[in-house]
Simulated assay, not measured.
Amino acid sequence: MQWIAVALALSSAVCLALGTQTQSVAVTGHTEGPLTPRGLWPLVRNLRWLSGLALLGLGTVLNVAALSLATVTVVQPIGVIALVITTLLHARHRHLIINRGTWLAVALCSVGGATFVVCAVIGTDPTHVPGTRAENTVVALLVGLVVLIGVCELFVRRHRISMFYVLGAGLLYGFVAVLVRLTATTITSSGFGDIRWTSVLMIVVAAALGGWMVQCAYSCGPPDLVIAGLTVVDPMVGVALGLVVLGEAGDFFTGALGTAMGLAGLVAIVGVVVLSRHHPEVLQRRAAARAQQDAVTSGAVADTATPRRTERATDR
């Protein structure tokens, strides 16, 4: 069964990578500048975008199936392969040369993320059942996060900050994963009658906003940065909520293990930051923006100097 789970997890990583790359190409090919809600409608009718969505859905189903056959320790670290695959696919599509900074970032994300997940599995108690108060706390925190991200998005949209969208989507999906798990646990133990519909509503709202953030991230950054952010931030948020809010810390969770988790998480986050600064596509966009700004500045200087020359000629 374990080898079947590994095969399913590998297939899931491939589907997630292909789906991310496909959707990214669709978004960048049909939008100029920041993605707007009006620009989302043509994407919904785009066959390539829909194909990417189908691949992402298939990848999610395969990952769930893998988790049902093996432990998180075996399955979850395999997901970082999606980052490597996406980086290679995107570099080939854009004819980019992957630099050392990008490879270093991929290594940091992979090692840090995998170590964090392994430490989390060792330190958490899978048999712990959170109470109603804990779930309500998660819902309240998610409501505040949705409002905060929604307000910030209105101000950040024109600046095309890819890290904002990547981190925002990762935070939202981390909350969604926790609420989905809590809802599934409730259905398994008590049936549909005890479902907390506020949790279901926030799952839908956060998932929709997270999907929007991902599409915006496609329009202003490389797809491998999106995958890196989601594979790093999403599980970290879920584990942090489980330990701090839901009380899932087990007997093996010690100060040393917590320190190891913190260091691993820091390494992974540094990897995401390095990728956002040294990815070859990011460097190209930065150089193009500087060239455009220099051209605008030169034009402004030339326009300012022209009237002076005209006045001197008139005086003569």
Rank of each mutant, 00 (worst) to 15 (best):
W3K: 13
A5G: 00
A7V: 09
C15L: 09
L16K: 04
A17H: 03
G19Q: 08
L43I: 09
V44D: 05
W49V: 07
L56D: 07
G57Y: 03
L58R: 06
T60Q: 15
S68L: 04
V72C: 11
A82V: 01
L83E: 09
I85E: 11
H90R: 10
H90Q: 07
L96T: 04
I97C: 10
V106P: 03
G112R: 05
V118Q: 11
T124F: 07
V129M: 14
E135V: 05
L142D: 15
V143Y: 03
L145N: 11
V151G: 07
F164K: 04
Y173G: 01
L179T: 10
V180H: 12
T183S: 15
T186P: 06
W197N: 03
L201E: 05
A208N: 11
W212C: 08
M213P: 06
V214Y: 03
Y218W: 01
C220W: 01
P223N: 00
L225N: 02
P235I: 02
V239L: 11
G242W: 04
L243H: 00
E248R: 13
E248H: 15
D251H: 11
T259K: 01
T259A: 11
E281T: 11
Q284Y: 00
R285P: 02
Q293W: 03
A295Y: 08
T297P: 04
V301E: 14
P307R: 08
